[in-house]
Write a protein that binds this DNA or RNA. Structure first.
Lengths: 338, 338
DNA sequence: ACTCTAATTGTTATCGATAACATAGTGAGT
DNA sequence: ACTCACTATGTTATCGATAACAATTAGAGT
């Protein structure tokens, strides 16, 4: 029950071949006698040999790891992105090394440092805002760096994302087209969730563009915001500005919390008040009534990121200009009658 | 922009000390002159040195990785467990290497094999059912193996979990106490999600114990099951057995989907029909009406697993009997008036 | 039989950090 | 001044696989 001490050396000795032959047997693309390979693989199974990638990692200077930092694992949007990224990378034999920053730039910096020690072949971060030192670490890591879920003004290297602000323009336009003018936005503290902050900025800009009052901003607290926070925020909104006609939640859980609070108070949605969110969480389509939302295609972000990494990996060092920015399309999913 | 080629050797040369001195500077607990350590760390920062754990991993035969396999990352319960596990391990400088089995035992086997190649210091799996070869790999890995979210009849080594079947007893008892007798269960294909299958078994056993009809079983399809599947299953149930008085969903998303379908059909919950789920997802407390559910303390599972791993790590090889089974308490959260 | 090419297997050095042991330096106590 | 204990640093060998190159073997062509 000791840590498996069977090495290639042991296999080689057992079979009377050199260690190199054993090594080759495990590399699918190396040319060798198929009969010998079979013998090696059989012996490996018999002796309970487990390939030791720590040794291979050191020698080959590549780990087949991709480091991924997300603000929270408990967020269906990020989980979708990581899932899609991970699935695609797994097909190429690569694995994801995940870190949660907890919506915190200082924690992200620590994570970046820790993850880089593991010598990943690429690093994927969420958003375009980082600590100065974090940014420096990323830029100097010597591996592909991909910022996602955002369109940073000053990208480090590669970007796979979209404009969070633009999505809010679309929602405001949607509500204005329906004749709503008193529209509120429920979001979190802006310094934590920068994508949320961008959405709030987009909301304000869109409202101004329509000549509408931008005073209906509710701060629901610190990210991560859940349904409960949405419900509380809605309660506050209904107390202070009961004539509000529409509410945009920074994400669907907040929007659903708001919806549930309306229901508890006997308000009819969308007759009395309209509600929209962000993220196309499953609940937006299942709740009764359904929620208007933005579908940012989280799985698409993950898959495109994976494809980019795989292309960069197979590219020669020099001929890898690539489009640096991959924009992901998003779409508005209107509730049946919001 | 090449992969950072600064090594301890470079630092040592730059400072005129030996590599060993540099190495010691990075190990907090090694005794050395604090002034020298400061100089080394400063030089590291200046030269952009990044510690290379691939080398340390090989030499020390330990990676500070914990491999964790969950059925789906897009499941708030598992995400909570992984989050808590990861947070606690991070405090001890360890990291989680995550794999998704997709509720599939064959895929799990492949994952076990891949993850063990990385030489994790421990491996955590979800549930107690594995392929024969997967089980053999786990048993022979020579590292702590922890099965979670279940109480396997034949544990490999350690277990941190609870009886899924027992939770369903509690729900059935709850409904029976309220005078319900025509109770349905909505679950998925039993061979994929074994915890879901255990809950179904628990449901059937409890119903039989109360002398009730166990025919109201709806198969909502292949795991992972979402809210949509719950809504569809509810529709089917209402068509085929409209006199059903209570419905138990194998997890909260199914239960909420069922609730939403009732609302679409104008049924009053819980007046016309009661609904319960499992998992204490946030939605069970926020939906209107709220859902009766079971709180299996997913974060607790993660934390206890982490603590166990840390205890095993610091224990000597021999004196580590430990309680092999850690049972996690769960509780029933009754809706206001279900 | 003889050369030549291609397929197969072997040898050696190495990736970068660290355990284990060795050595130099420092100061207290007598 | 001398020993002892202790701190700080250096030396050497090593973890296990693999790149690069070397050597051997087998079969084809003449």
């Amino acid at each position: 029950m000791q840590r498996s001490s069977v090495t290639m050396k042991d296999l080689a000795a057992a079979l009377g071949v050199s260690v190199m032959t054993v090594s080759r047997a495990f590399k699918a693309d190396s040319s060798m006698n198929e009969a010998t390979r079979k013998k090696v693989l059989q012996a490996a199974r018999d002796l309970g040999y487990v390939f030791d990638s720590t040794a291979a990692n050191l020698r080959t200077q590549s780990t087949n790891f991709v480091a991924v930092i997300i603000p929270s694992i408990n967020n269906a949007n990020f989980a979708d992105t990581v899932g899609a990224l991970s699935d695609r990378l797994a097909e190429a034999g690569m694995q994801v090394l995940l870190g949660n920053s907890g919506y915190n730039i200082a924690d992200e910096e620590v994570l970046i440092e820790q993850l880089l020690r593991r010598k990943p072949d690429a690093i994927v971060v969420t958003g375009g805002r980082h600590s100065d030192y974090g940014r420096k670490l990323l830029a100097g890591a010597g591996i592909p760096v991909i910022e996602t879920w955002d369109l940073p003004a000053d990208p480090i290297q590669y970007v796979v994302g979209f404009s969070n602000a633009a999505t809010m323009h679309a929602l405001v336009d949607h509500f204005v087209a329906k004749g709503k003018t008193r529209i509120a936005f429920v979001g979190g503290d802006s310094n934590a969730d920068t994508r949320g902050a961008d959405r709030r900025k987009g909301f304000i800009a869109a409202m101004k563009q329509h000549g509408l009052d931008t005073a209906r901003l509710i701060n629901a607290g610190q990210a991560p915001l859940g349904m409960q926070a949405g419900a509380r925020a809605m309660a506050e909104l209904l107390e202070t500005m009961p004539d509000t006609q529409a509410v945009i939640g920074v994400a669907d859980p907040i929007a659903f919390g708001a919806l549930s609070e309306c229901q508890r108070r006997g308000l009819q949605v969308p007759r009395d008040i309209s509600i929209a969110g962000f993220g196309a969480y499953e609940i937006s389509a299942v709740s009764h009534p359904t929620l208007t939302t933005i579908d940012p295609q989280p799985r698409r972000i993950g898959r495109e990121t994976a494809e980019l990494i795989l292309r960069l990996r197979s590219a020669d060092a020099d001929n890898a200009p690539e489009p640096k920015i991959t924009q992901i399309d998003w779409s508005i999913c209107a509730a049946q009658s919001s």
